[in-house]
Nucleic acid binder design. Structure first.
Lengths: 105, 105
DNA sequence: TCTATTATTCGATTATCATCGAACAATAGA
DNA sequence: TCTATTGTTCGATGATAATCGAATAATAGA
């Protein structure tokens, strides 16, 4: 029987630099975080990607596992937000610098 | 007949953010750039890694192809340096922020 | 010309990753 | 209870990537 496992989020000091950079190195994931940064928290279905929902779910799992994104359940929706405090605490300035760079290209 | 191909380096505007982040997402490559940043330009053989030289050569190729590192030939050695100007021109503050974060963990 | 040094290239292998469709889980609402 | 919605999980597949040993290339120096 398949079980909906509970989501696990790394603590601030469990977040690794290479992990965060890997999370951001995929164009889809970078765009997800960019939208979360500019438009605030959003459900998975509100991003307007053309990829399948299983692929999208995979990308959100990577973002959660690397400590970039927090997901809370609200009804049938999964509402995502950037873990700004933890990221800033762990690697000061990194998120903003990457987000700024993302608007350049 | 195998030919030693000429190295090709991307111009500043050919450098992509996801490419740079991918280059930095590997621990070996991150350490290479960290050493280049703190100790200046170095030949491939001077980094003290325990991996094979073909693997190390592969990592340097990735760093070149993504625009992070410049390699010049000096005798039988390949001397590497960070492309600071191009990176700063393309994505201001990115390199320093990542390097600073690399010293934290 | 021969040898040592340094690094790249090739070919192969193993591992990881992105992607998808189908099935399942959890919730909301009729 | 039934159905729709939303997202996760599973299993599979094709594409990338990391790694290595061996062969090759380029140069320096004896």
């Amino acid at each position: 029987m398949q079980v909906m496992r509970q989501m696990i989020f790394p603590t601030s000091n469990q977040i690794t630099l290479t992990g965060v950079l890997y999370a951001f190195s995929d164009p889809t994931r970078l765009e997800i975080v960019r939208q979360l940064a500019t438009e605030g928290e959003k459900a998975c279905c509100e991003f307007g990607f053309k990829i399948s929902k299983s692929t999208l779910s995979h990308h959100f799992k990577v973002l959660r596992d690397t400590g970039v994104v927090y997901t809370r359940t609200e009804g049938t929706q999964s509402v995502n937000s950037i873990r700004r405090e933890e990221l800033e605490d762990r690697f000061p300035g990194l998120l903003d610098t990457i987000l700024k760079a993302a608007t350049i290209s």
